[in-house]
């Protein structure tokens, strides 16, 4: 009897996957807001807790299913995959632009470009140096791991273009994913320290951090009104990384290591 009821509920969740995702995420945010108010006295943003909670659930979901998509690999929660997938994510990010202050954004334009350049070069250098330190000596592996430090999309795109092997690709993707997760969790913690409290620094931040998911999560958890400014620059980051990774960066590394 109890089993039948449970089975019926699961059936509804599978059939109404997106609707179920709305309910589950709403519940998650409700719990997070309560926790933010009661446990941290409002010092930590409710959305920061919700994002971390989402990541924790993704970890256990991944352990449970052995899949790559966190809780979205559980059939009853497959709607989370659609709700948090690239399509709706980009749709909602574009919507936030409706609130952008045009003058502010234009003034920060040059800063954004500078941030994009630095945000591509700095992680790449760190990534390549780490790869060398861990005993990689061929240009293809070094470049692929370095590109992974830019974002988890730039890594595999670069690796595929220059013919990296699958172990190196996996490392590269893992580096990018780790960076995205750390950006989500770390941003609200360091926001004050790095002056992330106005549209201009948000645009610099978006260009430097790059990873759209990291920036999206990090800014949402820090200060929602900064989201569109960060997203505006971050969205160019992956494209630029994919452009220079397999070309300029690879050729430079190859020239250096032979």
């Amino acid at each position: 009897m109890g089993h039948d009821i449970w089975h019926g509920i699961e059936h509804v969740f599978v059939e109404q996957s997106l609707v179920a995702a709305f309910a589950v995420v709403g519940g998650l945010i409700l719990v997070s807001n309560l926790a933010a108010k009661r446990l941290t006295n409002g010092r930590v943003h409710g959305s920061a807790i919700a994002i971390v909670l989402g990541l924790v659930l993704a970890y256990f979901g991944g352990l449970y299913t052995g899949g790559k998509k966190g809780v979205a690999d559980i059939p009853a929660l497959a709607g989370i995959g659609l709700m948090g997938g690239a399509m709706l994510r980009d749709f909602a990010i574009v919507a936030t632009a409706f609130e952008v202050d045009v003058i502010e954004a234009r003034r920060a334009g040059l800063l954004g470009v500078l941030a994009l350049a630095l945000g591509t070069i700095l992680p790449f250098i760190v990534g390549t140096l780490t790869a060398v330190a861990f005993g990689y000596h061929d240009a293809v592996s070094i470049t692929t791991i370095g590109a992974g430090a830019i974002t988890y999309i730039v890594g595999p795109v670069t690796g595929a273009a220059i013919g990296a092997d699958s172990t190196v690709m996996a490392l590269s993707i893992a580096t990018g994913v780790t960076k995205a997760v750390m950006v989500m969790v770390g941003t609200p913690l360091v926001a004050k320290l790095i002056g992330l409290d106005n549209p201009r620094s948000a645009m610099a931040y978006g260009g430097l951090m790059g990873t759209v998911s990291g920036v999206a999560g990090g800014l949402a958890a820090t200060d929602p009104k900064l989201v569109p400014y960060g997203a505006l620059t971050a969205t160019f980051h992956t494209g630029i990384g994919c452009l220079v990774g397999p070309s300029i960066f690879f050729l430079t590394v190859r020239a250096l290591v032979g």
């Binding site: 929660l77 893992a174 994913v177 997760v181």
Partner: peptide, 29 residues
Amino acid sequence: MYIPIVVAMAAQQNVVAALTGGPIVIIAA
């Protein structure tokens, strides 16, 4: 709906891979 969508996005990250990648991944990130 942006923040709820971001929460859903967080819930489908490959966190297991991120945490089991080993020192090279952590140091580079």
